[in-house]
Amino acid sequence: MEAKLKTLRQTCLKLSNICQDGNLQSAFSCMDTIWCLYDKIMNWSKETADDDARDRFVISKGQATLALYAVLIEKGMFAMSDFQQMGSFNSRFCIQTDITKFPEGGVENSAGSLGHGFPFAAGLAYAAKLKKNGSRVYVLTGDGEFCEGTMWETCLFASAKKLDNLCVIIDDNHSVGAMIDIGDMKAKLESFGFDVHMADGHDLEELENAFNGFEDNGRPKAVIASTVRGYGSGTLTENDIWFHKAPDDGELDMLCREVQEF
């Protein structure tokens, strides 16, 4: 694993340790996707974080917000020192996002309840289309999140309104394996009029190729990123107690070491 991806995961661990909460398995599974978007794909920088024509990243699977914060720290939007009180009573930062605390930008949506970020992203993409400002909107969802009806309502709308500037990334970390059988996601999305690319969600080159492989053809985009919950740490991958658990100081050292040696 690239050194940068290790650093990002170690940041997630430190943030989870500070606020004593978090869904580290989920953050680790989509870590590489978010980094790829911010580092290689999106027209975004901390200097243009409030520019109306910027590309936007919407986190629909809010339980992975630690991963987003790690990327934004790496990109200079925030400093690690901003997070020293993370999770405390008046902190700007916690397990989910609250956009009213970020008037200068950097966070695009208030996350928490699933099935909300994707329609919100479609509205942002539609606004960009109306303005013809070239802005693209990337929205990260979980695979299990697609059980919500609003996700499919959004697919209908995005296709009907030809939102080819909207890209939904499904972090397919096999949550639905434990739920009802959702069937063939690629075929389903294609039947709704999406261009769909598959990628190994832990291979930056594959991800980059998937995002760059789309055309401005009037069809909304989807990337199904095949991922592993907890990827980057044997402990997180193997033990599902880490679905919702924060490391204490000893576990933090152990997990950081594990990530370093991955």
Binding site: D52, E108, N109, H116, F118, P119, F120, A121, A122, G123, L124, A125, Y126, A127, A128, K131, G149, T150, E153, T154, L156, F157
Partner: peptide, 16 residues
């Protein structure tokens, strides 16, 4: 179409 429409409308509002 109500639930999803509200979310889309919120995105439009965020987009100005």
């Amino acid at each position: 179409y109500e639930d999803g429409m509200f979310g889309i409308a919120a995105g439009l509002a965020a987009g100005g």
